Amino acid sequence: MNRLIPAIVLAAPVMASAYAAAHPAQEQMQQNIDAVLKIARNNALSEAQKVKQVEQYADRYLDYERISALAVGAPWRQFTAKQKTDFIAAFKEMVVSMYAHSALVGAADAKVKLLPKMTENANKFDVFSEIQTKSGNKYEVAYQLYKIGPVYKIYNFRVDGASLVTIYRNQFNELIKQKGIDGTIAAVKAKGLKKQ
């Protein structure tokens, strides 16, 4: 199940929902789903081209800085500005490298529907979908967003309650204790984390 979490970062669900989203955050998520579906199903593109297009699209809607800060947790305050920049770039590259292929392969067969429920707390929103894999397994995915200008930015994902940032925080905290901040950044650059 945990492998699904980063895959969702790269390839959002792939079956457009018949549900007409009532809230702008849900409408944006449906647009994101449809856009990634179009890329994933475009047989004229190579896998590398699909990965690049999904990454470029995701760059507009994923807040990599906030995701990184939440994934590192309290030690993030000890990072210098350069270390933060280096970590964000390395973490993004690691996730893309580790999960892009499986995400796009899974996108071809998965069925996803946007669920009508959502939660709202001040400027934070949880939008929910249900993913059904080719084997018939079902997972509920919560996309955690906040609004900045006209855009809802994603800062976390939860699959059946398992949080992307929490899963990585455990690994990052252990790495920081063992190798320090620069050693952790080097490990992330080398894609030295366990695949979730």
Rank of each mutant, 00 (worst) to 15 (best):
residue 6 P to H: 06
residue 8 I to L: 09
residue 16 A to P: 09
residue 17 S to N: 05
residue 31 Q to N: 04
residue 31 Q to Y: 00
residue 32 N to T: 03
residue 33 I to A: 01
residue 35 A to H: 11
residue 35 A to D: 01
residue 37 L to A: 13
residue 41 R to K: 14
residue 43 N to S: 08
residue 43 N to Q: 14
residue 51 V to R: 02
residue 51 V to K: 00
residue 55 E to Y: 02
residue 59 D to I: 05
residue 60 R to T: 15
residue 63 D to M: 13
residue 66 R to D: 00
residue 68 S to P: 09
residue 69 A to D: 03
residue 69 A to T: 05
residue 70 L to I: 13
residue 72 V to A: 06
residue 72 V to L: 06
residue 74 A to D: 09
residue 76 W to F: 14
residue 77 R to Q: 15
residue 81 A to L: 09
residue 82 K to I: 03
residue 82 K to E: 06
residue 83 Q to K: 10
residue 96 V to C: 12
residue 96 V to Y: 12
residue 97 S to I: 07
residue 102 S to L: 05
residue 102 S to Q: 09
residue 110 A to Q: 09
residue 113 K to R: 10
residue 115 L to M: 12
residue 116 P to Q: 12
residue 116 P to F: 11
residue 119 T to D: 13
residue 124 K to V: 15
residue 124 K to D: 03
residue 126 D to M: 08
residue 134 K to M: 07
residue 134 K to C: 07
residue 136 G to Y: 08
residue 136 G to C: 11
residue 138 K to Q: 13
residue 143 Y to K: 08
residue 144 Q to W: 06
residue 150 P to K: 07
residue 153 K to R: 12
residue 155 Y to M: 03
residue 158 R to Y: 15
residue 163 S to N: 04
residue 164 L to I: 05
residue 164 L to T: 07
residue 167 I to G: 02
residue 167 I to N: 13
residue 168 Y to W: 10
residue 168 Y to P: 13
residue 175 L to I: 01
residue 178 Q to A: 15
residue 180 G to Y: 03
residue 181 I to A: 01
residue 185 I to G: 04
residue 186 A to C: 02
residue 189 K to Y: 12
residue 196 Q to V: 15
